[in-house]
């Protein structure tokens, strides 16, 4: 790597060297080994692995549950961010701190807690069981776990935008005679939609790859509640590294596409936050 502009500050060689060395050992070489390993397989083999019924249905389960969970999170995230920014109420700081819990609580702990809670013998599961609704060990259960994992992404994406939102626009609209609901839909919503989309994308990306919280609540029935990371795991346990790698590669591409879309929205978002557009 070459410097394009000499600086008087020392340490370029040292810090860049350390950065590149650790990056290579921890990230680049291992990721490259995934590509090298899958390059040994023929295209037909890859297609054959991916189009197995069980694999296809796991992709469907993964995408559907991640999408539904992220949609719920996008709506609840905006509501939570709105409540936390615009209103004051008792215990607000506690609620604000609790939002961060899914980042701090190990996913396995969240997984077993949610399973115990939503099983037919659990507090919440018992209530729904009376109406014949099962949560744990169904796709509903997977979605519940993913909502838990994804909620902070949306709240933390929308919150700063709402905080920076200039009340002058809302006031001006109010003075000009716009109703409250009109102000909300015409001024506030367009401002927070990019942030909500960013949060949705981040949550979706995380949910697609989530394993720890889902593995317990899913019950892992093939064709029903088996998500992609679970398939990869079971291929690994059978030492079928080729299949595992192939499926992993498809997953990786899916999450990179998600990330790319999120970045597009986020670039626009930063412009708004910095006062552009």
């Amino acid at each position: 790597m070459k410097r394009t502009n000499r600086s008087v500050i020392p340490g370029f060689g040292l810090t860049t060297g350390i950065t590149l060395t650790i990056l290579s050992v921890v990230v680049l070489i291992p990721l490259a080994s995934l590509v090298v390993f899958s390059a040994q397989m023929s295209f037909d083999e890859i297609v054959a692995t991916i189009t197995r019924d069980r694999v296809l249905s796991s992709f469907r389960v993964s995408f559907v549950t991640a999408f539904v969970a992220s949609l719920i999170n996008a709506i609840m995230g905006v509501v939570l961010a709105w409540v936390l920014v615009k209103y004051t109420f008792p215990l607000k700081r506690l609620v604000d701190g609790m939002i961060e819990l899914p980042f701090a609580l190990p996913t396995a702990v969240a997984g077993i807690a949610l399973t115990a809670l939503t099983a037919d013998t659990g507090l919440v599961g018992g209530f729904f069981a009376k109406f014949g609704i099962k949560i744990a060990f169904t796709q509903v259960g997977i979605t519940v776990a993913l909502v838990f994992i994804g909620i902070p992404f949306v709240v933390r994406a929308v919150q700063p935008v709402l905080e920076k939102l200039d009340p002058a626009y809302e006031e001006a609209a109010g003075v000009l005679g716009a109703s409250r609901s009109r102000i909300f839909w015409k001024i506030v919503i367009p401002e927070i939609i990019p942030a909500a989309l960013t949060g949705f994308g981040l949550a979706f990306g995380r949910c697609l790859g989530e394993y720890g919280s889902v593995v317990f609540i899913a019950g892992n029935k093939p064709f029903e509640t088996e998500i992609v990371p679970l398939i990869i795991m079971s291929e690994l346990q059978e030492y079928d590294y080729a299949s595992a790698t192939t499926i992993a590669l498809v997953m990786l591409v899916a999450s990179f596409v998600t990330l790319f879309l999120v970045n597009l929205i986020q670039t626009r978002n930063t412009k708004i936050l910095k006062g552009g557009i």
């Binding site: 990721l31 080994s33 995934l34 990306g205 720890g212 990869i232 992993a248 997953m251």
Partner: peptide, 15 residues
Amino acid sequence: VTVSPIIAGLIFLLT
């Protein structure tokens, strides 16, 4: 951070 944890484990297994 965008890589699924399972894949993160897998790449070290392959390496």
